[in-house]
Each structure stands twice: as C-alpha cells, then as structure tokens.
Design a protein around this nucleic acid. Structure first.
Lengths: 272, 272
DNA sequence: CTGAGTTCATCTCAGCTTGAGAACAACATA
DNA sequence: TATGTTGTTCTCAAGCTGAGATGAACTCAG
C-alpha cells in the first residue's frame, strides 16, 4: 500500500517528537589522512573505556543537535581540531581538504545504543603529532599498512592494532575513496606544502596507491593536464636525497578535475 | 585542547542517553531515477501538510531506530517500496540499483526540528506509475528537466514544481552522481530491461547526460570494454522506430568498472 | 507493392594519449 | 674526485578517440 496511508503515516511521524519516539544518536567520525616518511598515515585515538577499551578508533563524537546546533562538516572540523590539538582558524587545518565519505548506521554497530555515524574524509599536509606533550598512547598518526586491512573491509588476523566498532570498514572505504580521488582530481596537492616539486607530488601518489610510478611519464602527465599545477619559477634548495639536480617548484593550479585523468596502473586487475 | 580532556568528554557523551541530551532525528530520502519516453524522471511525492504543503518532495521517512531497528539501505528500500506501490521481494525492485548518495544535516533544513537525512540514489528500469489507481497528484514520476535545477543546486525562478526542504540540492547531487557513475561503471544497464540493444543503452546515456552521442563510436566502445555487455545471440523483434535493421540483443556483463571509461564529451567545459 | 527515408553495424583515418625506455646534465655522498 | 642517483626531456610504438562514410536491413507513406 502507498499513497494516502503512507502520507498519513509520514505526516504523523513528522509531527512526532523524536525524543519520545525512536532514539537514534548521530555522530561524526573523521578519517584524516596524511603522509609521513613516504607512507600514508591515518589519525587514530586509543579508547580508554569499554566497549572496545584499549582498541583504536577514529576521532569523532556526537553532533551538537539543538543546543549550539552545528552543521555536519562543522562537527567534523571541530572533532578533528580537538583531536589534533590545532585550531581550525589560521592553523594548519586551513589547508585541510574535507569531504563527506559516507554514513554508517547498521543496528548493533555500537553495542550501547543505536548510532548513525556520518564519516568524513580529510586530506592533510604533514601535521604535528597530536598533543605532542600529552599521553602519546591516546592519539597518533598510524601507518595504514599497520592496520592489516583486507579488501573486504576488516582486519587480517594477527594485526596488533585492532580497530573498534566498524571503523575498519570506514577506514577501508576512506582509503579507496582517496585512491580514486587522486585519479581524477588534483587533491594530491592537499597532501603537499604550498610549494612542492613534481617528485614530491609523485611520492604522494606512490604512497596512496602503494605502487611505483614511471617518473618520466608522471612528469609529462602532470604538466600536460591543464590547471593541475603552475610553476612558481623557483627551484628547490637541494636535489633528491641521494643526488640529482634541484627540482623546480610548483603550486596547486585552479583545476577542480583532472582531464584527462591520471589512472592507476593496477586498475586492470580490480575491474571485476 | 585534546587528549585526556577529549577522551573524558567523549566517554561522558557516549554513556549519555541521547533522548535526554540533544535530540536529532534521522530520516532517509530516496532519489529514484528512471527513464520514460527517452527522458530522465525522478520519483516525487506531493506534500499534504505544512511545512511546504503542496510542494513536491523526495519519498522518505524516519529510520526505525530501536523498535524494529533497520539498517539504512533497508529503510531506503522500504520507503521506496511504500511510495512506489510495489513489493521489494520478487517484484521490479529486485533489479533496482541502490547506493548511498550523501547525508544532509544543516541546522534549519527542517523548520520543525533537527533532522539529519541520509539520501539514497536508486537506478530503476521503467516502473509502473506509483499507485496508479489512487490520487494521481500524490506521487508521480517527474521529468527532471521540469524541475529547473541550476548547477548551484536550487531551482530557477518561475519553475512550477517547487521542491520542499533542501531537496533541490539533493536531487542535483543525485543527478551529478548518476551522470558520473555512467562514465566508469556499467550501471546504465540498471535502467534497461534484462535484455537490451546497444541503441537502447545509448538512449540511456543520452537521457542522463542530456546530449547526443556518436552512434558508431558508442557501439564500438561498448563492445570493446570487457565485461560491459555480453551477447544473447538474439535479435530484437523489430528495427528502430522509423526504420533500420533489427538490432542485436545483449545483457549486462560481469564487469563492475568500465575500463577504459566512457567519458562524456561535455566534460571539457566543466573542469574548472 | 514501391520508393524514400531511417537506423544498425562496421570500417577508415588522422590526431592524441599512453607505456616503456633512453639520454644527459645536475647533484649528494663517500 | 669518483660514483651512483635523480630531475627533466626525448623518442617511438601501440592503443584509443572523434568524425565521417558505407551498405544492408528495416518502417512507413502513398
């Protein structure tokens, strides 16, 4: 049945106070990614209380609903700022790219109550350690390789850093989104300093995609895509770590989409 | 501030009963797309009650949180089935593709209370009119061109079918997602009958992208992408509407990604 | 039944992009 | 100073794309 009955039901429910009806809590979780020492890292916090005490989880928390009501991206920025220990205004978070990743609301994903969590994905340039002077075990940038994530979105047996709730699935989805976004948007520049070199940009792609790229072809491609990068005219202070000429400096261009896209080589195998 | 303070705050909030804390309601809305008479249509319902009485809205409703708790896709399928008047089991909904589109939670988007809405996107083959025997003004497939949507996600002045809440933004996002998905996934087949012809598939692309495609190149491309379509060996009953040979029949292949992708021609202009 | 116009399916061809490799100068380090 | 590494630019073959042409199969009007 539809139509009149459904209309009546919706009108009824919409006029109902949800406090008295069916309590669902809304949280935001943030998958914040950065690159350190050439490896992709995700920001995690260690849980102090049950459930999942001692396990690692994404930074996040409740959305302020009515008192100090905030929009969802606001809540994500607030949580990220609180966990990272830096202010969102004027600080390093200014240059962080933030986008919605997805919403996770399966019954039972939180054993205490019904929680619907809106996950956000953040791309950050190298940021300081979270609360460097505090308890180092509470929050840390963690190499994603150390999480033992499988394609199915869970963790391999034997992995020491266990993730709480369904956060392994959320991190997996975030990584896949990041890998995909690097293909057709210029967001790799969000992992770099304001001025960067082509080899630095290539290192970002290699860290996120987990495979080496042909330096010559990458260089040609990046310069041939309109609006991806623009030259600053400058040159880096020194050459590569183990030699080589000083690379030229670039900054992010004004393109929002890469055309043609930079496709990852390994894509062939994942198609089916 | 982060670390210990933040930990305490989260532990405090997580143990808190949200009913007594900060009430946020969770709903699902469905952007159901289909193709009728060669044009892209979206399923809309007319609101009978304020706010926005008489305006059109996406089918949707509250997620069942604790009593009869359901997952978010379940809620979307239930709402879609209720509004469409067909059963999800065994009926035409079996072949509907459903994916999460995004979550909309700006304060004030519903004037009555704080509502966070998880939007789903559905691709459907041609379905019957919603509750054909009932009040025809209550639910209807609407040509998306009749909504006067702008790139900014609102409606042009003078458009007669006004959308309630922020549903113009949600529909706009759904359309952009659909256009994009057709490029790199075989989901155009979700708009077709189980067996279809290449010209029918091309009509889907032309309806969603809103531009004509080169028939010869499209044909070559579809057949050259591995796993996009597979031949049934059969032939359609008759030729095109105004003549031509009987086209061959195909069914959807097993590819989940199109490689190489089918890029829309107009992409060049939207890049910046 | 016939002729005109339409459509499916395939082919051709020039232009562009890609992947792989080579070359060479500039540089770090021992 | 010698050696190995790296940034940048070429070259070349292979593949893909857009635009157009062709001919057979078909619908429909007269």
């Amino acid at each position: 049945m539809a139509g009149p009955d459904e209309q009546d039901e919706r009108a009824f429910l919409e006029g109902y106070d949800p406090r008295a009806y069916d309590p669902v809590a809304v949280t935001v979780d943030v998958v914040a990614l950065t690159i350190r020492d050439g490896a992709l890292h995700v920001l995690l916090v260690r849980r102090g209380e049950p459930p999942f005490a001692g396990m690692w989880a994404l930074p996040g928390g409740f959305v302020r609903g009515v008192r100090d009501a905030e929009d969802l991206p606001e809540a994500a920025v607030r949580e990220l700022a609180e966990e990272t220990g830096v202010s969102a205004e004027g600080g390093p978070l200014e240059r962080v790219h933030l986008e919605q990743l997805g919403t996770y609301g399966a019954p039972g994903r939180d054993p205490r109550m019904r929680v619907v969590s809106v996950a956000y994905l953040a791309f950050a340039p190298e940021l300081p350690d979270p609360e460097a002077g505090g308890d180092a075990a509470d929050a840390a940038w963690t190499p994603v390789d150390a999480l033992g994530l499988t394609e199915a979105g869970d963790q391999r047996p034997g992995t020491t850093r266990r993730l709480a709730f369904d956060h392994a699935r959320i991190v997996s989805d975030g990584l896949e989104r990041a890998r995909s976004k690097l293909e057709y948007t210029p967001l790799a520049t969000a992992f770099c300093a304001p001025e960067f070199t082509i080899p630095e940009l290539r290192a970002v792609y290699e860290a996120v995609w987990g495979e080496e790229l042909h330096a010559g072809n990458f260089h040609r491609k990046v310069l041939s895509v309109p609006g991806f990068v623009e030259s600053t005219g400058g040159t880096a202070d020194r050459g590569g770590r183990r030699g080589g000429p000083r690379p030229k400096l670039y900054r992010a261009g004004d393109a929002r989409l890469l055309h043609p896209a930079l496709l990852r080589p390994s894509r062939e195998e994942e198609i089916r």
